[in-house]
Amino acid sequence: MYELFVLGELMTGDKHGYMLQDILKNAAGPTRQISSGTLYPLLSRLVDGGLIHLRHEEESEGGRTRKVYGVTEAGRARFRELMEEPLPYDGETERLFGFKMVYFQYVGKDVRLSCLRQYASYLEKNRKYVVDFEAKLLAHKPEPEKQRVQLLRVFDRRKTVWAAEIEWVKREIERVEKEE
């Protein structure tokens, strides 16, 4: 996922490591931070793999050298591969979908539609799981009742959120399908 992020950000233009870390910090949200110990080894691997290039630029204040990264043609190809990969159905699906959406302008309509449809399928699968589990709870009425009732409220919340997101994705699919 972070490889996609780095390559996607570099598709917009060259950036130094601190800027990449800052953008990712804001994109991932307050509960998911990437450490320097994760980002800089990834950048080194991408440089070593020929997916990005590194140049040293002298900073105007303090005279320090800043490392600036840019994407190579091999990196552009790898970025497209990552964008075309199916979404996993795991705990990172929503975050990865969000990252992919940010970079939709760099891929074709077919890739965007595929990603949107995969995400819609993921949401529908989760909604169905909750609906089926809710039906079991209603049929068997396990104890304690207070806990069962609260669990049903949690399920109601999830169904409401997923229904709204499913509707949004359907509208987005329709919008992209109409593009030329």
Score class of each variant (00 low, 15 high):
Glu61Gln: 13
Pro144Glu: 02
Tyr122Cys: 06
Leu20Met: 04
Leu10His: 00
Gln33Phe: 13
Glu84Lys: 11
Arg66Asn: 13
Asp48Ser: 12
Arg95Phe: 14
Leu7Asp: 00
Ala163His: 04
Lys136Ser: 07
Gln21His: 07
Gly29Glu: 05
Ala28Ser: 15
Val68Gly: 01
Thr65Glu: 14
Gly75Asn: 03
Phe155Trp: 09
Gly91Leu: 11
Thr65His: 11
Val6Arg: 00
Pro88Thr: 09
Gly13Tyr: 12
Ser36Val: 14
Ala74Ile: 01
Glu81Lys: 08
Gly108Ser: 14
Thr160Tyr: 11
Glu143Thr: 10
Glu9Pro: 01
Thr160Arg: 14
Gly91Tyr: 11
Met11Asp: 03
Ala77Met: 07
Cys115Glu: 03
Arg45Asn: 10
Leu113Gln: 03
Ser114Leu: 07
Asp48His: 13
Gly17Cys: 05
Arg148Pro: 06
Ala27Ser: 10
Gly17Leu: 00
Lys170Tyr: 07
Glu177Trp: 08
Leu10Phe: 00
Ala120Glu: 15
Ile52Cys: 10
Gly8Val: 08
Lys109Asp: 08
Pro86Phe: 12
Met83Ile: 11
Glu134Gly: 11
Leu51Arg: 03
Phe133His: 02
Arg158Met: 15
Gly98Ala: 11
Ile166Gly: 03
Ala27Lys: 15
Ser121Leu: 10
Tyr2His: 06
Ile23Asn: 01
Leu24Phe: 06
Leu82Val: 02
Lys15His: 04
Ala163Arg: 14
Arg175Met: 08
Val130Thr: 13
Arg117Asp: 07
Val107Ser: 00
Glu94Pro: 09
Glu124Tyr: 07
Val6Gln: 05
Gly75Gln: 09
Ala74Phe: 03
Tyr122Gln: 03
Glu174Ser: 10
Glu61Leu: 12
Ser35Ala: 13
Phe5Lys: 01
Pro30Cys: 05
Leu54Lys: 15
Tyr69Pro: 00
Glu61Gly: 04
Ser121Glu: 10
Tyr119Pro: 07
Leu39Ile: 09
Thr12His: 05
Gly108Phe: 00
Gly49Ala: 15
Leu116Tyr: 09
Leu123Val: 10
Arg55Val: 06
Leu113Ile: 07
Phe97Asn: 05
Glu180Ala: 12
Tyr18Ser: 13
Gly75Cys: 11
Val68Asp: 01
Tyr119Asp: 04
Leu113Thr: 03
Arg76Gly: 06
Leu54Asn: 09
Gly75Lys: 04
Gln118Cys: 09
Leu152Phe: 09
Ser44Ile: 14
Tyr18Arg: 15
Leu87His: 06
Pro30Leu: 08
Leu51Asp: 02
Gly75Asp: 08
Glu73Arg: 09
Thr93Gln: 10
Glu177Leu: 08
Thr38Gly: 03
Trp168Ser: 14
Val169Ser: 04
